[in-house]
Design a protein around this nucleic acid. Structure first.
Length: 373
DNA sequence: CGACGGGACGC
DNA sequence: CGACGGGACGC
């Protein structure tokens, strides 16, 4: 092991292992004790540091929590971001902290935390890779690096997970022979933030993107060369006219509908509160692929409400939505939701704090055949 | 003899 | 908007 300089003897372990520290923006009234109380359940806290004014000793509303493992820090971020530590305080923000040496205070994006790079036997197919890694969390996709001419595997693969904690769990716990590490983001230069209104308002989605030829099957993979690559920070995805939206903060139907309705061609927007976490999941469908790609480009990473980054990915389950709706139906039973709402958006106040009622909005026309089956 | 260690995405 | 203390080092 290398000695870390000697100027700061204790600095070496602050970010070891990488991404094991969270950066908190909290109320200035929160103490180290209240933070410890709320964050201890996610793992072994090694250090808590509430940043205070050097002279007045008042909290600056900033704190760092160091965990033993990256997966613990990621879980703390996923579970605590947007929550309130106590009554009458604002929702807190939780991010993976930048490493101490970093001068940038830009947020560490989920983009950089959810994809791993692994070494695999050359005989593995993408499905094999997925089977090996799905035990750590929902795998969004796998891709194997292949010889471009012969198509033979180079024994290297990427695995994209849904959540940062899944990727961290895989890295920490998978067989050492995979040599799993976090993948470097592909387009370091390109931003996946939504572009500003000035640059986008002058161009229509149809002008920006080319509609691909009609596919034989609704959600089959398209040739990416047809697209403006810059429109999609993550390629190697199966595009589709349906999108999944993940939000750390529970959202309600009409806010999300109105947001995605900004892009022309919205067909429906169904939201579902995850009973087992603070997440909200939603399915958004557009009339055509162009609208969906444009919506993903614009809204993936968009802060809504401010401070809560939406995760937007293509939903290409290869089906017509039946499987998803079955899942929703079973979740409705589990959640003891006995009503299915159909119709225009139901008005409901956005409630960043406090309990949010479980709310599912599904077309009866689609669900009816399922219930009778 | 016989298999360690290596490692990056069609822009 | 919201980013970096404390403590003492084993040859």
């Amino acid at each position: 092991m290398e000695e870390s300089g000697g100027f700061r003897p204790l600095a070496g372990n602050l970010d070891d292992p990488p991404n094991s520290r969270v950066f908190l923006v909290v109320s200035k009234t929160q103490t180290e004790d209240t933070i410890r109380e709320k964050f201890a359940e996610f793992g072994d806290i090694q250090d808590i540091w509430v940043v205070k004014d050097r002279h007045t000793k008042e909290s600056k509303g900033i704190a760092f929590v160091k965990y033993a493992r990256s997966s613990q820090a990621c879980r703390a971020m996923e579970e605590m971001h947007g929550r309130c530590l106590s009554d009458n305080t604002k929702p807190i923000k939780v991010f993976i902290a930048q490493s101490r040496g970093s001068t940038s205070h830009k947020e560490v994006e989920d983009e950089e935390l959810t994809r791993i790079f692994v070494m695999i036997p050359k005989s593995y197919t993408e499905e094999d890779v997925k089977d090996k890694f799905k035990e750590y969390g929902e795998v969004e996709y796998c891709s194997i690096i292949k010889n471009k001419t012969t198509g033979e595997s180079k024994g290297l693969a990427y695995v994209r997970f849904q959540k940062p904690s899944h990727a961290a769990m895989a890295i920490e716990n998978c067989d050492r022979s995979y040599k799993a590490i976090l993948a470097e983001p592909r387009n370091k230069g390109a931003s996946f933030e939504p572009s500003d209104y000035h640059s986008s308002s002058s161009r229509q989605p149809e002008a920006l993107l080319h509609e691909p030829p009609a596919p034989l099957y609704p959600y089959e993979q398209y040739d990416y060369s047809l697209y403006d690559k810059a429109s999609d920070a993550r390629n190697q995805e199966n595009v589709s006219k349906r999108l999944t939206v993940v939000s750390r903060v529970p959202l309600v139907q009409d806010q999300l509908y109105n947001l995605f309705d900004l892009i022309p061609g919205l067909e429906y927007c169904d939201i579902q509160r995850d009973m087992y976490s603070a997440f909200s999941h939603a399915v958004v469908q557009y009339q055509n692929i162009s609208s969906a790609i444009y919506a993903k480009f614009k809204l993936h990473g968009f802060e809504y409400p401010p401070g809560n980054r939406l995760g937007v990915t293509y939903l290409s389950d290869g089906g017509d939505g039946t499987e998803l709706l079955k899942k929703m139906a079973s979740n409705m039973v589990a959640a003891q939701v006995n009503s299915i709402v159909w119709g225009p958006q139901v008005s409901q106040q956005y409630a960043p704090t406090g309990p949010v009622s479980i709310f599912i909005h599904v077309s009866l026309d689609i669900v009816k055949p399922l219930l009778s089956a």
